[in-house]
Design a binder for these strands. Sequence first.
DNA 1: GACTAACCGTATAACGTTATAGAATTCGAT
DNA 2: ATCGAATTCTATAACGTTATACGGTTAGTC
Lengths: 342, 342
Amino acid sequence: MVVSLKDIAARAGVSLSTVSNVVNGYRPVGEETRIRVQAAIDELGYAPNLSARHLRLGRTGIIALAIPELDNPYFAELAGAAIREATGQGYTLVMEDTGGSYERELLMIDKSRRQIVDGLIFSPVAVSREQVLAHPPATPMVLIGEGVYDVPHDHIAIDNIAASHVAVQHLVSLDRYRIAFIGAQAGDHRQSAHLRLRGYREALAGAGLPWDPALAAPTTAFGRADGLMAMRDLLARTHPPDAVFAYNDLVAIGAMRAVAEAGLRIPEDVAVIGIDDIEEGRFSNPTLTTISPDKEHIGRLAVQSLVARIEGRPVQPPYDVQPPFRLVTRESTLGGLRPVRA
Amino acid sequence: MVVSLKDIAARAGVSLSTVSNVVNGYRPVGEETRIRVQAAIDELGYAPNLSARHLRLGRTGIIALAIPELDNPYFAELAGAAIREATGQGYTLVMEDTGGSYERELLMIDKSRRQIVDGLIFSPVAVSREQVLAHPPATPMVLIGEGVYDVPHDHIAIDNIAASHVAVQHLVSLDRYRIAFIGAQAGDHRQSAHLRLRGYREALAGAGLPWDPALAAPTTAFGRADGLMAMRDLLARTHPPDAVFAYNDLVAIGAMRAVAEAGLRIPEDVAVIGIDDIEEGRFSNPTLTTISPDKEHIGRLAVQSLVARIEGRPVQPPYDVQPPFRLVTRESTLGGLRPVRA
DNA sequence: GACTAACCGTATAACGTTATAGAATTCGAT
DNA sequence: ATCGAATTCTATAACGTTATACGGTTAGTC
């Protein structure tokens, strides 16, 4: 049997309101009655009905995290941090996998889906800035990643251009001159691909290296298979690259596989660097040099910002945060055998 | 402004009940009024308040998936399937990361946490059979994985012993005689480790190979780092193994890294096989031979079983399902260079 | 001894929904 | 004409919670 306030009230011989006050501490309650009520609560094993509470309060205590792909370890690791923070703040976090699909992303910002949710952390990839502007969300929204810029929402994303500079400069410092980029995008979406491509070009220019469009390999998506195919393609050229800057670690790992299949050595023949610092790259053969964003920081900050807005706490106007990142050098660029530190 | 049934009723000039009937199709409504009401709904952009609906109906439409580690790709891939199925069935799935912690797992089955949830899909690792029996859940629960057996709940897990047989037999068929197992557990928990160890021993016996306790390496957890350390240990022995059956793919990948660091070749010096068939193993160097459970099947079936129980549909008594699995042979046992089929 | 203030408790009205019971209308059949 | 039945709609009472407004009692102050 499910126990409600009414049962407790009857048992303790007080009114509904008093029990509610004991439970929530909203109003002072006499010491003696508090004890009596608490005893009844313990005996009957009362737990508040969240639907009722939420109906009354107008909030659900649930926030959503909408990401393009749960099976990308980057997002899985990020989600872990977000879940921990949300739990700590007294919220439940539900994850939505949009699959990077346009319709499912629109559904996310569409308010019909939001009746159940107090706020949304959203990593858009397919949807455009204009569409976000055209569908003002009914509840607060925090954006993560580089999908959409310049909208009136909190936004958390590393400085992609700066990160790309660091990556390319690292390859340049190793005397690589034919540096490819895998993950250039054709369409208008995936801002981050544009930004990383731009950072790549700027860094090349800064190093006095020529810009060769043939070395900017497009992909349809950003998984291991995409990196593999793009790299096979690059290696089949008459002048293959001597280094690769990959859109992310998954792409980089696919690319490394292609290099190995071609019978070439990493990094002697081709050096490889990615972005994300997923755990997989710490154990791959060779281990993967990467740009490491602080995922724990991003996940927690996203939840904190969202909760602050939900609870109407004093927050600045929508702000852009650029979490820190750092270069993590490993075998795929430095070479040698560098035992994993475990 | 948030639109409720009342607003629609006023707009369309009908009663609350009629609008509700239009929305839910519970009672027949005249064609003309239906159109008028639908128009009002579209104009005002009505979406039902789920808290209110759930309060009234006594169900929340939310199911939880509690897994030990979101950053294990196996669970991430499984969760993807579960989310898809849940969405299709009209449920929202929330994920809970227990971290394999005893307290957080108990919290999951504890009913206080369940007020918000219609049912739970649970992959226990720390909690025991007795504890599950002692804390009867308030709502239906489906167990996945091998943590707990013989409890009155639906249970979905591959036949671990049979899977281990297949894995070890594969190694035997390649003329390996010193086959190690990584992932033996000391404590009473992690049934699956026991089962896989048992399958390993049975298969050895079946092949007429001796049982050497020194080759059963325990680990504290089941990640890449654990496989790495255990393998380093095994390779430092006077008689190192010529093959390794790892508790799962993550452990296998850590083990492969250790073999590479030791300057040995896979599979010539040491063959490696895992369980799970995570995508990572399809692109690793070398690619990883593994036992592939049908994750899509498991995820969907878990949700289907749970929803059937929640909705009180005719279901058999709690049943045990053993989803199919198959051996996927790759470079880590077969050797050679086998280009990834992409 | 009356007035205020503080304290503690309660009755009640929402929050938005749906199920039940029933009211109003129409239509056939007697 | 009248009754029963079918059809379409509506009023109302919950579901369990919390905020508001108010009723008592006690203590303190002039």
